[in-house]
Design a protein around this nucleic acid. Sequence first.
DNA 1: CTAGGGTTAG
Length: 574
Amino acid sequence: MAFIDSLLQKCSSFSHIKQLQAYLLTTGHSQIPAHRTKLIEFCSISPIGNLDYARDIFLRVKTPSTNEWNAIIRGLARSNEPNKAIVCYQAMSRHQLRRDALTCSFVLKACSRVLALLEAKQIHSQLVRFGFRADVLLQTTLLDVYAKTGDLDNAKSLFDEMSLKDIATWNALIAGFAQGSRPRDALNLFEIMRLEGLKPNEITVLGALSACSQLGAITEGKRVHAYVQEECLDGNVQVCNVLIDMYSKCGNVEKACDVFDSMRCSKSLVSWNTMIMGLAMHGHGIHAVELFKKMGISGVRPDGATYLSVLCACNHAGLVEDGLRLFKSMAGSGVAPSIKHFGTVVDLFGRAGKLDEAYEFISSMPIIPDVVLWQTLLGASKTYGNVEMAERASRALVEMGSNTCGDFVLLSNVYAAQERWDDVGRVRDAMISRDVRKVPGFSFIEIDGVTHKFVNWDQSHSNWKEIYRKLDEIFSKIRVYGYVAETSYVLHDIGEEDKENALYYHSEKLAIAYGLICTIDGSPIQVIKNLRICGDCHVVIKIISKIYDREISVRDRARFHRFKDGFCSCGDYW
DNA sequence: CTAGGGTTAG
């Protein structure tokens, strides 16, 4: 090993580096370019180094070498101002200095961190000119930039063009698909990878399992889990954590607990947080609070996400006292509450019908309330039919310039429930004049490995007529059980019969009807919805679970609802 | 003079 390397290795603090520099200066060694480069690199990259100091040395060099530029760009790329790496790279280009594969690699890393797609494309064209196309590592970096900046099509075509790929290349694209809302593509690629005889590693399965979580694809999730066990990848904490998340989000929180309890590696903070969040999603509040206590006993310090998870669990289970107690305990454990934590408290009060307390709490907060907070209060006002509070929350939302469809719908529903049609009309006019954004609601169900997606009033499915007939059958049966459509959930001022029709064909009902048609009597049905479940659907699904004797689980935006024998696991409290 | 760079959960 070179002389300078052995000395740098012995440095364990920044002052050691300075001592070394002084030594080099007094002995004349600092004039050796290789030494200078090493020193800059070490200062720029090492955790005990100092990027500003590296830059000071660098700026004093008259004609820095490519390696020295690289060291600075690399340091900047991983600093909290990665855009400076791009600026530095541009300066280097102006100096007409030779850039090598590493220069490109580091600056591309910076591009991915600041989502600079345009700059990445420029560098892409440059590295084609430089002749770095055969470099697998560099191509993979480039692929990753495209994926992270959301240009998945470019990432995919780069992947297809690469004659040489290694496991990291596959991983980059699988992870890219998984994180870029294309989980189905991620899973397909994972399958192709196995068909081609490649061996997915722990990083690959992280992407694949995350894709399963998003899709609620339990069958495929179990298959990947089996692979993880075959290859002994479950000694990795991250893999275990993503397995816990996958089972939770696929509706099997018991299996998530099994994975959590039987981990042979030591649990990380994320393990605890994921498990608590999983319990929260399933409404297992007491269990979540117990786990939170256990976590403290085991010596893992909670962070902001831990509190968010356990507060969320209290919310979903209606544990108002526990939630408030936990929120108050945050200060003592040194975790500063963020706006999201304040939000859960508003939710806690709101769900319990304590609207005045919720309002008081918002008014006394040390930070400015955000849109989500007022939406929470508005939602609670809707649930409890409190017109005055709903108006207060809506006013705040309008002042903040909210143009989210849901806000208007909620207020409109509050009026509709009181049959105040003039006010409903006023809200509708406001919606039209403000060009509000509508987030389309959709639900999906997986049948024999094929995902079927439905929107409200969907007639695009090849079997739509059969599905609608099934729904008509359902409605005629459930009427016998005293079902009356909860028409207050409908926005428009229309006749009662039309109102019922508007509810009949909600996406979650269509998906469940399709599930009833396509699956064997008595087998469970699982549906995933992108928004919160509608109140009328909630009532209807409860009755379906009883008269068709099916266990139905619906994962909505926030949590699971498990319907069985006419009851829902959320206890109608959500 | 050499090597160094890529994929990673809540």
